[in-house]
Simulated scan of single mutants.
Amino acid sequence: MTDNPAEIVEEAAHPPRGGRWRRTVVVTAVLALLFGVPWWTLLIAGAAWPTAVVVGGTALFVAALIALPTLLFTGHGRHRDLPAAVGDALLGVMWVLFVWSVLGNVAHLVLLAAGVEDPVRSRVIAAAVLVVSAALLVWGYVEAMRVPRVRPIEVQIPRLGRGLDGLRVAMITDTHYGPLDRAQWSADMVARVNDLDADVVCHVGDIADGTVQRRRNQASPLASVRASAARVYVTGNHEYFNEAQGWLDYMESIGWSALHNRHLVIERGGDRLVIAGVDDATAQGSGVHGHGEDLATALAGADPALPVLLLAHQPKQIPQAVAAGVDLQISGHTHGGQIWPFNVLVRLDQPAVQGLSRHGARTQLYTSRGTGFWGPPFRVFAPSEITLLTLRSV
């Protein structure tokens, strides 16, 4: 199970060993549904459009069906930004059309029960699907491209010493610097983070899609992030598609602490907090030497009496945190679903989609909706965020 609609193609472009045929079947089925349902709803299902409309519309769907996998595999598979960006946008358009076509067919049954006959019924549904989809795509694009709003969250941590009460932790994640050049967005996002005057700033993975060399221009504003106590970073799953060690080295080179299965300790007012980080859950299977989630190593040498803030990219890494007695894990990865209703599918793979949740007697998990986006440049009912976590002692 993937966590946003575009990752299906990303994973197909980087198939695991032995998984090529399974990925091919999945992608084929997805494409059939993605294009077939809107085609039927808009052109075929009782609307009795003129032949020229049906033929022209069908030709457009066929052209898009051929273009989508071509663009995505050429772009993401061969690391070419223009086809990747166009393919991502087309995928987002088709996902929204598919979702609202499905809902349109439900409305179709309501109109049928109300006695509205075809072709009026099907034409009304087709028009409604197009209007709603277009409006959501425009709104979703604006939501994806804007600088994220700050989401303030207070978290009570019983073991936190009073000297650390009020510690401000700014969290960004899933920036996904990629085919669209968002260097200015990156600079504006960093400026907003700096306005928070945080004690700790965390980047919780999926920094970019591509190597340091390809995405340095977009990532370079991160060097200007300010924090009074620490700036810390861990890898996400997308680093393991490209250059995980390269990104760890880059973040160290611009003054961040890369928590590659390790920890550091900060102190304020005579009290201390352990900040630990682990590799992404996919690291072990990536084949990158020396990488793999290892919380025991990350906490080795830490005083077990101290509270622990853990950076782990995926929420589903929480069982290890619970077993180790971690106080707070912060994660990203889910994008909050990014394009509704993908949040429902995300929940099948992850224990949380967004927000603060409790796991076990001690451990809390905060899951961010993400600071950027991946794939389609749209966010529908899943706004991006810069999270400001204020830690409170009890």
Score class of each variant (00 low, 15 high):
residue 100 W to D: 06
residue 41 T to M: 09
residue 128 A to G: 13
residue 224 S to Q: 15
residue 189 M to F: 13
residue 158 P to C: 01
residue 177 Y to V: 08
residue 343 N to T: 11
residue 310 L to M: 03
residue 156 Q to W: 09
residue 208 A to D: 13
residue 291 H to K: 03
residue 52 A to H: 15
residue 267 E to T: 14
residue 213 Q to Y: 14
residue 381 F to S: 10
residue 356 L to Y: 11
residue 183 A to N: 12
residue 241 F to N: 12
residue 270 G to R: 04
residue 83 P to C: 06
residue 176 H to E: 09
residue 69 P to K: 06
residue 290 G to V: 04
residue 293 E to A: 06
residue 275 I to P: 15
residue 330 I to Y: 00
residue 237 N to V: 03
residue 110 V to S: 04
residue 345 L to D: 02
residue 141 Y to M: 06
residue 125 I to L: 08
residue 268 R to P: 12
residue 359 H to E: 00
residue 108 H to Q: 07
residue 233 Y to N: 05
residue 131 V to H: 07
residue 10 E to V: 12
residue 343 N to H: 14
residue 332 G to H: 05
residue 178 G to Q: 09
residue 106 V to I: 14
residue 324 A to Y: 01
residue 370 G to H: 09
residue 145 M to E: 09
residue 165 D to E: 12
residue 132 V to D: 06
residue 76 H to Q: 06
residue 381 F to A: 14
residue 102 V to H: 10
residue 121 R to G: 03
residue 363 T to Y: 00
residue 389 L to F: 05
residue 105 N to G: 14
residue 98 F to S: 02
residue 276 A to Q: 02
residue 138 V to P: 06
residue 326 V to L: 00
residue 277 G to H: 01
residue 234 V to A: 04
residue 247 W to M: 08
residue 157 I to C: 03
residue 54 V to W: 14
residue 338 Q to E: 09
residue 334 T to H: 03
residue 296 A to Y: 07
residue 65 L to T: 06
residue 308 V to D: 07
residue 275 I to C: 07
residue 296 A to C: 04
residue 86 V to D: 01
residue 251 M to I: 02
residue 244 A to R: 13
residue 184 Q to V: 15
residue 152 P to F: 09
residue 328 L to W: 11
residue 33 L to T: 05
residue 312 A to R: 00
residue 151 R to G: 10
residue 65 L to E: 02
residue 379 R to I: 11
residue 51 T to D: 15
residue 178 G to V: 03
residue 382 A to P: 10
residue 185 W to D: 07
residue 252 E to T: 12
